[in-house]
Design a protein around this nucleic acid. Structure first.
Lengths: 245, 245
DNA sequence: TTCGTGACCAGATAACGAATCCGGTCACAG
DNA sequence: CTGTGACCGGATTCGTTATCTGGTCACGAA
């Protein structure tokens, strides 16, 4: 009968309402009304309102993660930090929820950020470890420099990503910029900061030893994909934890 | 009689109170009391409360700019983007006011940020142009890559700086990190993203053609110093504009 | 005459109760 | 057995009053 289950419809509706009205104004009753169900029905699916909205965020994050995994499976070069970060940058800016999460436009998410920080602390820690393994694998196969500490590289990566998300907000006096060129700048910055410089025959902008890179990436990809598949599982578990027992 | 004029004492007191209490709670009466002057006296010096607090910020910015100029005069290598950014990062984190400006811990500055954005828009625009000239000069003498647009480099620079300022806030679950190592990471990131890679004899971490770089920097330095001296003048003018006519 | 001051004004802000809203439950309808 | 909406109490909002504070200026001290 239904093209999607009640739960999914509620989740989708909650997401739309969250970005449209912001955390403070969203009400369970309105979500239920728009989803065409009774208020109590929402609580047949999720423990609390916060759990539902947390699930909205988790769901968007999972989407982004699945896209990432699909890309990495299709093309090993997508495991490179510059690719991962710039792709995520684009995906996040196109997803209303993730855009709000990262740019925090006018505080749409309100307290939800703090709630998520507390509630999802464990998941975030796992994410950090995943990033470490990711970078570790790339260092091992020579795609990421190993002349600086891995922890420093993780910090740098996050700082750059945060910077590109916030810079637009920071300079909001100007036009609302196009995503793609920005993503390319981001990719360039990450590549320059973290990835191994091209071989001795390198040209500044060209693709020098493309074959070596591709081969090494192909070697590292399966392990990296496995790491993020694990995160996807943990994320799915966490999402299930938001449901009513 | 006085070791510092009344105006300076008021300014300093206002700065201390601003960071201690935040924009919302600070009152002119308390500033006057702590500075040991009458309330009306404050208005003999500054047009309005906002003008005074704006002057506090401008004053801190001028301090940082003077330090920057002093460094560039003492050592031409300090004109390199990596040096400028990492030095400013350190200076800003050590200055209570600038730290608040850039990390916006718990919204201490409140509306002041918006007020500054409006009131100092012209000065900021001049700052942007100064940065463009700065980068232009470095491109001209081969210290900054010219295989990407100058506007992109300016954006990248700002994004990286913002990222490093915000990353600490973003990951505040951890220990409050030491400034110096972070500044080195920042320098490395900027260098990798913007500055020309070392010559053919380059080693990953060493200083390859240090002499060439130093010489080129010495050639570019005077012009760049002049650009920022101009900004210092404009800033001083803007500060004077906050005074009572 | 000049410089500094604090009482004073009006508009902004806070304080506080009353009224409303909303998250969450559960007895009951279908 | 599934889904619902009336219902409860704590949280939030709102309207009003009371307080505070930015800014002025008449006046007193030097």
């Amino acid at each position: 009968m239904e093209l999607e289950g009640r739960g999914e419809r509620i989740l989708r509706t909650a997401g739309e309402l969250l970005v449209a009205w912001g955390y403070r104004r969203v009400t369970i009753e309105e979500i239920a009304r728009r989803a065409g169900v009774g208020k109590g029905t929402v609580y047949l699916h999720w423990k609390t309102k916060d759990a539902l909205l947390l699930a909205v965020v988790l769901d968007s994050k999972q989407d982004a993660l699945e896209r990432q995994l699909a890309r990495m499976r299709a093309d090993p070069l997508e495991v490179l930090p510059s690719a991962v970060m710039s792709r995520y940058y684009c995906d996040a800016l196109e997803s209303p929820v993730l855009r709000a999460v990262h740019t925090d436009d006018s505080g749409v998410l309100g307290r939800l950020g703090d709630i998520a920080a507390v509630e999802l602390a464990e998941l975030v820690a796992h994410g950090d470890r995943a990033l470490d393994r990711h970078l570790g694998a790339l260092r091992a196969c020579g795609l990421v420099r190993d002349d600086m500490a891995l922890a420093d590289q993780r910090y740098t990566l996050i700082a750059i990503l945060v910077g590109f998300f916030m810079a637009d907000t920071y300079l909001d006096s100007r036009a609302p910029a196009v995503t793609e060129p920005r993503a390319r700048l981001l990719a360039h910055t990450v590549q320059a900061a973290l990835e191994t410089p091209a071989g001795p025959t390198a040209t500044p902008d060209g693709l020098p030893d493309a074959d070596r890179v591709r081969e090494a990436a192909a070697r590292a990809a399966p392990g990296i994909i496995a790491v993020y598949e694990h995160i996807a599982q943990l994320s799915a578990e966490e999402m299930r934890r938001q449901l009513r027992p």
